[in-house]
Design a protein around this nucleic acid. Sequence first.
DNA 1: TGAATTATGTTGCAATTACAATATTATGCA
DNA 2: TGCATAATATTGTAATTGCAACATAATTCA
Lengths: 152, 152
Amino acid sequence: MADENVLRSIGVIARALDSIANIEFKQFDLTRGQYLYLVRVCEHPGIIQERLIEMIKVDRTSASRVIQKLEKNGFIMRQADEVNKKIKHIFPTDKGQRIYPQIKRENDYSTTVALQGLSSAQIKTVTQLLTKMSANVSADWEGVKKGQPRQY
Amino acid sequence: MADENVLRSIGVIARALDSIANIEFKQFDLTRGQYLYLVRVCEHPGIIQERLIEMIKVDRTSASRVIQKLEKNGFIMRQADEVNKKIKHIFPTDKGQRIYPQIKRENDYSTTVALQGLSSAQIKTVTQLLTKMSANVSADWEGVKKGQPRQY
DNA sequence: TGAATTATGTTGCAATTACAATATTATGCA
DNA sequence: TGCATAATATTGTAATTGCAACATAATTCA
């Protein structure tokens, strides 16, 4: 079944580029996994933890710890909501914002590498299809994380 | 830059489906990450660790430990090479082989979910493009893992 | 209106992961 | 032919990760 290679390729690309990014961001004092959160916080200042979790599909306990660490190390800061005592808004600090262009640059470079040899039309196609696939798996992830087994 | 969404979608799909798989394989006494190795060993009996590492793009120390654990728990067995004392061939045990159909079934189901709404032509296209992208990032991964910084 | 349920975030604990260093063996080269 | 280099795998260590349980607050519902 050739279709299975879709997910295998996705897994390989994700692991390879994640590993590369973690290694490359060590020079900015970002430890494993931190860049993933920091870049989203920079692009969505004021976001709350729950929205981040939904956006990037990570475990809530991992997110809690990474965000604590990013705050401790001065990359982000958290602000309580004025009305809703349950949520805290996350903002990048100056230090965090200064690193954002490097993360963008690395991400753009990795994208260039990954897309090498693809035409503009193919890039557009693969982008659209992956966006759809991402949306497709989203519901299953939420359900399984909430303890609802998938039936198959 | 819309192109950056390619890698973001890939990351989301990979994390979501990996998390789902780890949760679903707990019932087969497979712990986090183990299914990834076991399925490849079942499909490539006799493979050596180095080849597995290249195939799935994981850290060699992680691979060493996961394989040890899989052996300890009776899913695989290792055999020294007759000629080359440095390599060990990895085979699935009966126990390991019995779980293979379940891993395949889960993987097929996840593929079905991910590809929902895509036509056959689109599936073929995205498969081909992802295979190419996977090959594209492979060289960078090997270089960076060997300590060679990327220039950009 | 008050209890039940859901939402958001955190902590204890144990397992996993990866860096750095190490060990052993095979291969390359002068 | 012997030394240097590369290849394959492992271990010590510390950091990260996720399950299960927990805490607090908001929302739902009878």
